[in-house]
Write a protein that binds this DNA or RNA. Structure first.
Lengths: 349, 349
DNA sequence: TTCATAACCGAAAACGTTTTCGTATTTTCG
DNA sequence: CGAAAATACGAAAACGTTTTCGGTTATGAA
């Protein structure tokens, strides 16, 4: 029941604790013979170092913190999965906290992680986090910090993002290439950088292709949920707006809109084309299948941990790496909701 | 940069470390005056106890482990969310590990958690975990253990589950009540208890209602994914099977089947009725909306943590609670995929 | 005043590990 | 053979906290 300690092994073998410790860690100043003896005994007794003591002594916990707005979210899910996996490979454990998009909670959780003495922190900000003092505190304490997806440009730490502006530009361009000329945008909340950037990319694409930007064609989704997509789609129809394309901030919103159009007999993609964002796997299971922008959560998660790990290593060596911002690639995926494919044509004729 | 310690406060105030420690914890043998002094100073210096030292001294980490097959999964997502929230309220941090339904990995992760000296462990087993020695080890070490959802009856610990057999029975009965007489079952893998129970519930419902059980009507989904639903739905059609209802092990599978029927012009629910399992939120966004069995992940998560907490408390008091198995309620939710509602009738007429 | 009691404080051990430094023993080699 | 060097081990401090126990001072009662 009780866990065995170095002391017990030492007493059993009649040698000192120090030697036992060193033997287990293959120090050069322990003879092969005693090493073998100690290791055998440790094995036999199923010795496991007491991590509390190790932590105290080495001042590191081999534990890192991760704060995200929502665990359930499919995109974060992939990121989480990747981070956990990568971290485990390097012997790190991940403590996950969910901010529920609540800046107050986010602050508390940062404090919690600091008090637990995590070695590093990864965070995707709550949508409406404006005060970054808690993050400044993390930096002040010298705790490596990596931000991803939802970032704040005010914090001088490393960041892993996608080029939202470019991705949105490409998505909008895709609709234009499919023949849309009056494109609405179901945008995300006003604050987080990526919903701003997606909006800007959308706007830029219109301008670059000689289409007029109309602020009435921009609908705010706050929060970014299924129902908002439905709401705005209904608004578009009820007000009889002249729209032939929609670029939605997120697949979730796009699917909400799609469900309304299906219900109200609007033919997608013939009457109206839609493209979402994030390539949620279920988007390929809709009828019609949903066009979207693919952002690889797994790859992103890997990158996030790898960056943090680099900074952890650097810190151990007494160095401090200059912050770095890395943009991950994205890709427009054209599907049934924006493309009148040959198959779709056949089915209709 | 460096964290302040009791020693520093003590030196600054010219008193002993012991007194500082006791003052902060409101020991009765410290005067109000020094308590005030110490607290003010601690506040000013932003003192935070070094949890490594606290852990070592108190032999508890206020950290608990959670192992689940898949974080991304919406059902587990809800559970995770609930557990984290509840745990935080009681001052516990949650370390989440993902087993990827891999028993080997699961074993390793248990060891990892043990070596990190978590105070307790919650686990939903990998689908094909048969050897439970790693769990026995947890119990042998006296670490409180709570299993949920995917459990093993061989481990004498507390368990939080749903009554899968009853739920499946109700789901099948629902189809029968809607007029189905030839009901197929897209079942889950052979091993985990809940997919066995769902199958048994399905079978029992058939028998109780005078319908013949036909093993050809049972399709194995291993793993339980969207594609399996498609695959079997196609098989049903290709082989021209005489089927008028499907009870799927999971919404995911049901949605896969639904997409095939939509594509191939099978009218749901007129030609064929479907019911899924778990009430994945997207299931109400399908066309038609998907009937399902609601199992409340949030409630379950809460229950899981609360039970673990109870055992943690008991352990502190030197007690050992007898294991308890709690079944959470479920509810059949009839929607468009199994019910020809008035609205649907109108639309068709 | 004196003694018992209460109130307050601190010394010190303990938790289990890591690591430095010193020392004792053995080996090497001129 | 003797000195230098290599080898092997252990003592002890340190990490920062908690808690027991003993001691000192103040308080009150006799």
């Amino acid at each position: 029941m009780e866990q065995v300690t170095l002391k017990q092994i030492a007493e059993y073998l009649g040698i000192s604790i120090a030697t036992v410790s060193k033997a287990l860690k293959d120090y050069p100043d322990v003879s092969q013979k005693t090493k073998a003896l100690v290791k055998a005994e440790a094995e036999r007794l199923n010795y496991q170092p007491n991590s509390f003591a190790v932590n105290l002594r080495t001042k590191e916990s081999r534990t890192i913190g991760l704060i995200i707005p929502e665990v359930v979210h499919f995109f974060f899910g992939n990121i989480v999965r990747a981070i956990i996996t990568e971290a485990e490979k390097k012997g790190y454990l991940v403590i996950i906290l969910q901010s529920d998009d609540n800046p107050e909670l986010e602050k508390k959780q940062i404090d919690l992680l600091i008090s637990k003495r995590v070695d590093g922190i990864m965070i995707s900000l709550a949508n409406n986090t404006v005060d970054t003092s808690h993050l400044q505190k993390v930096m002040r304490l010298g705790i490596p910090l990596v931000m991803f997806d939802k970032i704040s440009k005010l914090v001088p730490c490393s960041k892993i993002i996608i080029d939202d502006r470019k991705a949105a530009y490409e998505a909008t361009k895709h609709l234009i290439e499919q023949g849309c000329t009056k494109i609405a945008h179901f945008r995300g909340p006003l604050l987080p950088q990526n919903s701003i950037d997606r909006f800007l990319g959308y706007k830029k694409a219109l301008e670059d292709h000689g289409l007029e930007y109309n602020s009435k064609h921009v609908f705010l989704c706050d929060p970014i949920i299924y129902e908002k997509g439905r709401e705005h789609a209904n608004a578009v129809l009820d007000e009889g707006m002249d729209i032939d394309g929609i670029f939605a901030n997120t697949d979730m919103v796009a699917i909400g809109a799609l469900s309304v159009f299906n219900e109200r007999g609007i033919k997608v993609p013939q009457d109206l084309k839609i493209i979402g964002f994030s390539n949620w796997f279920i988007s390929s299971a809709m009828t019609p299948t949903l066009s979207t922008v693919d952002q690889d959560g797994i790859k992103m998660g890997k990158k996030v941990f790898k960056r943090l790990f680099k900074e952890l290593q650097a810190k151990k060596n007494g160095q401090l790496l200059p912050p770095e911002t890395i943009a991950m690639p994205t890709k427009v995926i054209g599907r049934g909701s924006s493309m009148v494919s040959k198959a779709a044509l056949t089915a209709k004729s």
